[in-house]
Design a protein around this nucleic acid. Structure first.
Lengths: 81, 81
DNA sequence: CTTCTTTATACGGTTTATTGTATATTATCT
DNA sequence: AGATAATATACAATAAACCGTATAAAGAAG
């Protein structure tokens, strides 16, 4: 289970999904990550280009890790099968 | 093949490793990512907390994707076996 | 519809990343 | 050693994130 993040929208969607999946409010995640509720809101909506540190803290508050993977062509890849 | 990134040091090491693996200079990566050579240097040395956008651009220049994964306890985990 | 909770937006002020440019430092070669 | 290439560091200026705080807007429940 892993999802590629290539822009702020992807990141926001992933954060929101994970948060709801845990039954948390933005304020809960915010407190755990030591940021404002408004920041979490912006992040989830892909409205600001957050700092990498900030993203890591918010993700950590959701028990999520960032990992790097060799880029794979988007869409269909016949070599996979 | 994937590596977890939990701080700037991890990120810097990963970037440098990927860059050398491709036989590129910092200036090459910098141009491709539209940043300064000095920024790539700082990133690789974990000296600044870059913006998430910036990290994504640099990684993209190295054909690397960021992905999110559920956090797994560090170290030995008996439930895996 | 009214109340309560949650999320989105706003604004001024502070902090920090990023830039351009330049140079110092280190590594690599002959 | 000397020359060249690559990386690290410096500094002032600009841009943008982040904050505290407050409020508006949207959702949920009664």
């Amino acid at each position: 289970m892993s999802k590629v993040i290539r822009n702020n929208k992807d990141l926001g969607a992933a954060i929101r999904h994970a948060r709801k999946n845990k039954g948390l409010r933005q304020i809960d995640v915010a407190r755990k990550a030591s940021v404002r509720q408004a920041l979490v809101s912006d992040l989830e909506n892909g409205l600001n280009a957050a700092k990498h540190d900030t993203v890591l803290r918010v993700l950590a508050a959701l028990d999520i890790d960032l990992s790097i993977v060799p880029r794979r062509k988007a869409g269909f890849d016949p070599t996979v099968y």
